[in-house]
């Protein structure tokens, strides 16, 4: 049994993983608890040291989080929509290729997939990927080409999972209480940009779910700051977005 055999065996063993039941919120709660214990222990040690030295130094300046999210440029969250045309046979072929791409990507140690878009009319599958495309996918593209389906790779900025994580953070943001313009507004919908460039958030009236007449800058800034550097397009609207 050589190295290649062992790699093949291990890959076969994890080819069909069970459903992921990791609780990210619990991770953050557990991490904060551990961090609190560590900080308490550090403070305790520091107090002891200070007592011996006879000098008291209390803390340092707590730096505020620096949040400088880029201002999204108009239209940068490019809508890419698949086409529904083409024969049923072509649609089935393209759907199968798209499924293969997603299955192969999910089996990689790092899944940098941003989106997969089917174009049956062109017998093409567009794969938006972050960073270098792994050989497993380029091999798959070669294989699909032999069956008549073209798999094209387009560079994306953020992976689907990274955008979904940002959505989790952004969707928890409430309208700033100290901003009169934001009162009565709420987040009504959100979604990832199809081109993998960021996320979209829709703002609506809390009372009737009608789209907000405008987006208060303070509300938009609060949403942007929740996700850091990733571009966020905040727009009036009430419908959920799929992307």
């Amino acid at each position: 049994m050589n190295e290649t055999d062992v790699k093949g065996l291990l890959a076969a063993a994890v080819a069909h993983p069970a459903a992921d039941r990791i609780d990210t919120d619990a991770v953050l709660r557990g991490g904060r608890r551990r961090r609190g214990v560590r900080v308490a222990a550090t403070i305790g040690t520091s107090v002891a040291v200070v007592a011996v030295a006879g000098t008291l130094v209390i803390g340092g300046t707590r730096h505020a989080d620096i949040i400088a999210g880029p201002t999204p440029s108009a239209g940068a969250c490019r809508d890419i929509t698949g086409t529904a045309s083409g024969s049923l046979q072509d649609q089935a072929a393209v759907a199968a290729a798209a499924h293969s791409v997603m299955t192969t990507a999910s089996g990689l140690p790092t899944n940098n997939l941003a989106n997969v878009i089917a174009h049956p009319a062109d017998l093409t599958v567009e794969v938006l990927w972050v960073g270098p495309v792994p050989m497993a996918l380029t091999d798959l593209a070669t294989s699909e080409a032999s069956m008549g389906v073209t798999v094209e790779f387009t560079a994306a900025t953020y992976t689907k999972t990274r955008m979904q994580a940002a959505l989790q953070l952004a969707s928890r943001v409430d309208a700033p209480a100290d901003d009169p313009a934001s009162q009565g507004l709420t987040i009504a919908g959100d979604g990832t940009c199809p081109d993998g460039s960021g996320i979209k958030i829709m703002i609506a009236q809390k009372a009737n779910n009608e789209p907000a007449t405008s987006v208060p800058p303070a509300f938009a800034a609060a949403i942007q700051s929740s996700v850091g550097q990733m571009p966020v397009w905040v727009e009036p609207g009430s419908a959920a977005i799929t992307g």
Binding site: P17, T24, P109
Partner: peptide, 27 residues
């Protein structure tokens, strides 16, 4: 951990958790 760092951490978790799960499963 600040918001930016937390967002980075969550981003890293979402892209790396599948690989870590498989490593843990093989163990």
């Amino acid at each position: 951990m600040g918001r930016q760092a937390e967002a980075d951490f969550l981003g890293w978790v979402t892209t790396s958790r599948a690989g870590l799960r498989k490593t843990a499963y093989l163990l």
